[in-house]
Design a protein around this nucleic acid. Sequence first.
DNA 1: GTTGGCACTCTTTCCTTACGAGTGCTAATA
DNA 2: TATTAGCACTCGTAAGGAAAGAGTGCCAAC
Lengths: 366, 366
Amino acid sequence: MEISARKKKILAAVVEEYIRTAEPVGSKSIAQTAGLGCSPATIRNELAELVNMGYLEQPHTSAGRVPTPMGYRMYVNELMEQQKLSLEETEEINRRLNQKLQQLDDTISDVSRLASQLTDYPALALTAQSSVTAKRFDLIYVDANTFIIVLMLSSNSVKSKLVHLPLSVDQNMVQRLASLFNAGFTGLTADQITPLLIHSTERAADDTMGLTSVVAAFLIETLTEANTPTAFISGENRLLNQPEFKDPEKAHKLMSYLSGGGYILPSGQEESMVSAGEVRVLIGPENVAEELKDSSVIIASYDAGDNTRGLIGVVGPTRMDYSAVAAKLSFLAAGLSKRLGGGEAPPEGMHNKLIIKGDDPNEHGG
Amino acid sequence: MEISARKKKILAAVVEEYIRTAEPVGSKSIAQTAGLGCSPATIRNELAELVNMGYLEQPHTSAGRVPTPMGYRMYVNELMEQQKLSLEETEEINRRLNQKLQQLDDTISDVSRLASQLTDYPALALTAQSSVTAKRFDLIYVDANTFIIVLMLSSNSVKSKLVHLPLSVDQNMVQRLASLFNAGFTGLTADQITPLLIHSTERAADDTMGLTSVVAAFLIETLTEANTPTAFISGENRLLNQPEFKDPEKAHKLMSYLSGGGYILPSGQEESMVSAGEVRVLIGPENVAEELKDSSVIIASYDAGDNTRGLIGVVGPTRMDYSAVAAKLSFLAAGLSKRLGGGEAPPEGMHNKLIIKGDDPNEHGG
DNA sequence: GTTGGCACTCTTTCCTTACGAGTGCTAATA
DNA sequence: TATTAGCACTCGTAAGGAAAGAGTGCCAAC
């Protein structure tokens, strides 16, 4: 059965009213606000059908209607209007991005904080999983017992570490080692750096002091860290703003799930699930994690340069302001991409052309 | 009026029972548990006097007794038994410290997370405010448009940054600049680096491309960052475990205060308030921040090396397990000091000799 | 297809009552 | 003088019940 235009209007009205008030929506208030010239009784008939179709439900017989996940899904896919951010909002976001943005590592936490502040929901930011390799080694001789490892990565970031040794370092050896590493270890991923390779380098450098393994260990650690996507969550406490979490039990469960680095997306699929410039919405039971079955997640991806993508997302009750949050995240992601990504800058006003993708492709007419 | 030995015993029993159950404590339960051979009626008389003296209060006429902040203070200063950590606990802490500890920057968040997990309260970690200066500069020429700044600080950490320039870099210039910076900028604090100094260096290096100011900017930024104490708070959500925060309003207020980097100690006095090896307890109204007047804070300081100290602290309701938390924090701080500080390692079993200092020196007999 | 009317349902709120934990006081006791 | 038993009293909390109110479903009329 196809859903009529009026039903759509009514459904949208219910969803929006419910998002606003968190109270079941009655026929009367719809008749007043939705602006379609008909009486509460008519609305009631339509509502009853929407319940039958699975878009709405009643908490109990004499209550108003509440959207089901399916109702939200319909709303997000077809009914929701793209929300435009006000000039002040876009300026605010840009200002804060410019203020903070130097290196992704430092900002991943700032980004999640910003997203949380903007939306008033808990927010998370994920760095992209990429395959970073070493591009260049420098070893700086400081004194007889000390040298500095400087490691430039394919992602064009630089990592460094001060190494103290109990033994005296030979300055020639340090230089020899740097050349050997530049020759043999650049372009390798962490798991291509085998003990065998290290060992043969050690011999080639005539290294009896274990310098080679120190440098190699730092390299492996750095690469592993750079390739491990890290998540940062902030603003968990904002859940408490939402009436659905007035029960501390419930709030605590979700908050500790989030704080504990609880994964939002099926691991390994993070970036692949959201393509660039698009915002994905996971509603209630569409989430994989048991703890999120009553909540919704909105995720945008950003281009972190180097052909990798990261994610920013927001978690809230299913009764979430999808439109506003999607718009904000989309703009934020675009701003991040512009600043981090090497690639083409998103066009001005890009946040208006926001593409929202549902979870289940069957459900939205393509 | 001096407080009798029996009153002390009774007060301690009330505090401990209340900490355990979060329910007002009646005379009967004390008579049973406290093991002083007297009847509830006797206890009642004593309790009434303890109320008069200000150590206890009654929520209402027919309820049991609850400690006042003054009662907690007395308990912390004089009555509380030093809690020893079990072998498993100390081993667990040591294990996790060893696992994580490489550089303070990376671990400040880990430390606060660890403290929070151990105590099941929100925890914060503060880096020490110190006066870090530059110790050594290296500039690595990468290609015509790129070089790397490597900056070694007096704290013996190393910071580095990749710099891209629109103009071609002259390799000689890069080296000249490094020498000039090593000669003129080491040992200076951020505010000693004046535009004048930068300008004269620029001329001395014959730098027409603005390299000098790029390096100087990085230096200033790094020093400023290193000297700014950063706080990290985690586990805010654990507040929800406590029955006193079953009201989401209340919980949210405190949590957002904490998340917002709310300051626990009067700013500027952070380290000076807690001396090494000692644990400080701030009970309820002893706190300066309005938001903390109903809560208690337990703080330990650790030696971060380089004559600087940092803090780890825990926030909870006044009904807090002072003894256990103090023991854990103390051990944690000692462990951190041992690993970070240059100084003498704390003696084995140091957590047994824990010194607890109250807020107000007048209140505990010296 | 739409609407007004009306009986019905079910939650929420408020009030009252009963209960019980714990006290304070008094008088007896060691 | 300190302790104890006994008892009336207080006050918060839980339980029960009635009234209110919001919203529905359905029917008959338009």
